[in-house]
Structures are given as structure tokens and as C-alpha cells.
Amino acid sequence: MHDPHTDLHSEQGALRGEHPGRARDPVVKVQDLAWLEFAKPDLRRAEEFAHAFGFATVLRDERELQLRGTGTAAPCVIVRRGPRSRFLGPTFLAADTADLARLATATGAAVTPLPASIGGSMVELTDPSGARVRVVAEPHPLPALPGQQPLTVNTGLDAARVNRAQRPPRRPALVQRLGHVVLQTTRYRATLDWYLQHLGMIVSDFLYYPGQRERGPVMSFIRCDRGTTPADHHTLALTLGPRDRYVHSAYQVADLDALAAGGEYLRARGYRRSWGIGRHIQGSQIFDYWRDPDGFLVEHFSDGDLFDAALEPGWAPFTASGLAQWGPPASPDFLGIRPGPESLRELGAFGRALRAENEFDLHRLRGLLKVARS
């Protein structure tokens, strides 16, 4: 029988003339994703879900909620009170303030101080899709919190645990850190090149619509360039679509048991799983996706790939079955085709995108529809 995963692992490289996956002389090289910002009308409800998901609160007042993992980085999610729920933009971490000055000079932006509760300074930019992008340097580190330790596991003939039963508690899967954010854009190529040129990021994997490779990629998994120091397979992922929007964000937890038991904790409290549990192909993460009360898609993950700057991009066809090595099929909710407000917004965007001047044309629409059926 044919293995449906044959040729879906994207270790195969580029063909002559295809996108190199990096800029020749970037302005700066960001080191990580610092935090994400959202607006939501109900901070109490947002905090309640956040605690069940595994975040801890750094700050909460009438206007703002800051959430963190157990590590020492600055808050990884900032929620501001607003009249409607929306994603405000990603914030990346620069190596130092000299890089901020270099980025400001290259773009004509200003270096401004961050609030005292966070510390450091920032440059605010806008990418070609219209997203607000902030780059920060030297925010205050946070004291580490007690973490969730990976379980001692007996693997095959290796008996590391003897005379001890395994009883992982059903409790929130404690978030260790922010891993990545996925964004959809109608101007995929311009937006991709902007991040590579301005922030010095590099592509780990490209995906293209089956039968349309000659037209170029439609999704990229992008990591930070830390030289010989390994970085997450992707800190940012970009995908072509009919409108500019947030897709999901991902947060690392200790191991599979923490992820699975944390999912049972969320399910028992009435929260909705979108897709999981499974293991991805691009990035290899064990994943579990959930919808928060405001409809945002968020992911627990563990055991992701780490690449240094030497690895060249892989290329693979974009298919729904190619999103996971094992696990249930990608759900209609995850694919954005589950009946509801979000799928209606996406459906309404098709016509507007096809009439506008962008990269999402009729051929790309046909390719995207094939992905959902693959």
C-alpha cells in the first residue's frame, strides 16, 4: 500500500532559481519572538482561560493583562481591553539596543522607551500586509517560576523507572515560553521578503500548492538566525490567503503527558479542542490546538525541531494530510471551513481578494481549495 506520507517530509531542497529563503544582507537579526499583543473586551474571561491553558499572570488592571510562562523572558502575551477581540501584532527581540538603532535608521522609525513595567526600548514598524510589528531590546527579565518536569519514561528496553507508577495529574499544562505565531497575508511574497530583509530571519521550510510549484511557495516556516546556536524550526510562519489575519500562536510545555493531561483539564472545563493530539511534519512538534473564548486559536506543543543557520530550506507540497505525521485528520475548525463566523469572514474575503491587487488570484484560490480536500 502507498504510504500517504511519502515525499511529504520536506528535506528535499530548492530547484534552480527558487527562493533562497534568506536575505543576502539583512538590516538586523532578531533573536526570538518576545510577545504577542491582543485586544479583548473581557479581561476577566481572558485570564480565566489563560490560567486553565497554563499561563501565569504578571500584571492585571482595568486596562491590561500580562501573561507569562515559567521561564525568565518578559511576558509572552499582553492583552489590552478593547471594544472587540482582535490581534494587535507580534513583538520580536533584538540582540541589543545597537540593533534597534540600526533598524530605526534603515526604516526612518524612532526608538522609544517601553512602559516601566516591561522596561527596555522598541521600534515600531508595519509589514507589507499592514501588520504592526514591534522590535524590542533589553526588557526586564522575570524571575523563573517553578516548572513542570518531564516524566521519567521507560522506552523500549531502557527501564529508567522501576517500582514507581506513572500518574500524571490532570492539571494545566504549564506554559514554559512562547514558541511561534502564524499569520495569513494576501501579499505573501512581499511580506516574506520584508521579514527576511529587515529582521534577518531565515526559512526552514517552504510549501507550495500541488501542481503550482513553478508559481512559487505559498507558505513558509521561518526561524531566527542565531548562527551556530540552534533556534526553533519556526518562530514565524506566513501563509497566503484571501485576507490578512492571525492564524494561531504556539506555547511550549514540558512533554506529551503535560500536554495531554492539560488538554483533559481544559476539556473538563468546557473549552473546545480544535485539533489534536498529533505530531507535525514541518517542525516535528507534538501539538494540541484549542479555541479560547474569543475565538483565537492557540497551541500547546512539545519536542520541536531546532536548526542552526547552516540548514537550507526544505520544499514540500501543501496538503491537509501533510500537516501531521500521526494524529486525527486536520479538523474543519483548524482548516477554517467549520461553519461559523470565522469561516464566513474567510468566505466573504475570497471575492474581495480576487478583485483587489494582491497575490491571491483565481489559480491560488483553486490551489487552496485543493488543500482543504487533500
Rank of each mutant, 00 (worst) to 15 (best):
P4L: 10
H5L: 15
D7P: 01
Q12A: 15
R16V: 14
E18N: 01
G21Q: 07
A23Q: 04
R24D: 15
R24T: 14
D25G: 13
P26E: 05
D32Y: 04
L33T: 08
A34P: 00
W35M: 05
L36N: 06
L36M: 10
F38L: 10
L43Q: 06
R45C: 07
E47M: 14
A52G: 03
F53Q: 09
A56D: 09
V58T: 15
R63Y: 04
L67I: 03
C76Q: 08
I78E: 07
I78L: 13
R80Q: 15
G82V: 14
R86A: 11
P90N: 11
T91S: 09
F92L: 08
L100K: 09
A104P: 12
A110V: 08
T112P: 09
L114I: 07
S117C: 10
G119Y: 00
G120Q: 08
S121W: 13
M122K: 15
L125M: 06
P128Q: 11
V133S: 06
V136M: 07
P141L: 08
L142A: 10
P143L: 01
P143H: 04
L145T: 00
G147E: 14
Q149Y: 09
T152W: 06
G156L: 00
D158V: 10
V162R: 12
Q166S: 14
P168C: 04
R170F: 14
R171A: 15
Q176P: 03
Q176W: 06
V182D: 02
L183G: 03
T186W: 01
D193R: 12
Y195D: 02
Q197Y: 13
M201N: 02
D205Q: 11
P210E: 07
Q212I: 03
R213W: 06
E214V: 01
P217D: 00
V218K: 04
M219S: 13
F221C: 04
I222R: 06
G227V: 02
T229H: 11
A237V: 02
A237W: 01
L238Q: 05
L240C: 02
V247F: 11
S249Q: 04
Y251W: 14
D255S: 12
D257R: 13
D257E: 14
R269A: 07
W275M: 07
G278E: 01
R279L: 07
S284F: 10
Q285A: 15
Q285D: 14
F287H: 04
P293T: 06
D294C: 08
S302I: 11
G304Q: 10
L306M: 15
L306G: 14
F307D: 14
W315Q: 04
P317Y: 04
A320D: 13
A324N: 05
W326S: 13
G327L: 02
F334R: 07
R338D: 10
P339L: 07
P341W: 01
E342Q: 14
E342P: 00
L344H: 12
L344I: 11
E346H: 13
L347Q: 13
R352S: 03
E357C: 01
D361W: 12
R364M: 09
R366V: 05
G367N: 05
K370M: 12
V371F: 15
V371K: 00
